[in-house]
Amino acid sequence: MTRLKLYTAIYVVLFVSATVQVLVEQAGIAYETALAVILALSFVKAVIVAGYYQHLRWEPRSLTYLMGIGLLAVLALTVAATYSITP
């Protein structure tokens, strides 16, 4: 029943991908590309922590939807507010 091996593997993945984020920035690729890659990595890591360490994967889906709604709300705020700026 224990998931110790899985948790350890996830820990290694998270550790490595944090390092990769820094390496991407230093790789000298275009800023926009680096931005997209680095933020995508952050989202992936967040999903992994929520899914496995907070074990949402094994919880009723309602909790995942709950967090999704919260995320959607702040994304709406951020995107709409930023879009509203008159250049």
């Binding site: 909790l63 709950l66 967090m67 709604i69 919260g70 995320l71 709300a73 702040v74 994304l75 705020l77 951020t78 507010a81 930023t82 700026i85």
Partner: peptide
């Protein structure tokens, strides 16, 4: 606990949103 965390998501999200803005 989860419901509280959702409110914390919005709190931090608003901070990050303020930064982005």
């Amino acid at each position: 606990m989860w419901i509280f965390l959702v409110s914390d998501v919005v709190l931090f999200g608003a901070f990050i949103g303020a930064y982005v803005f």
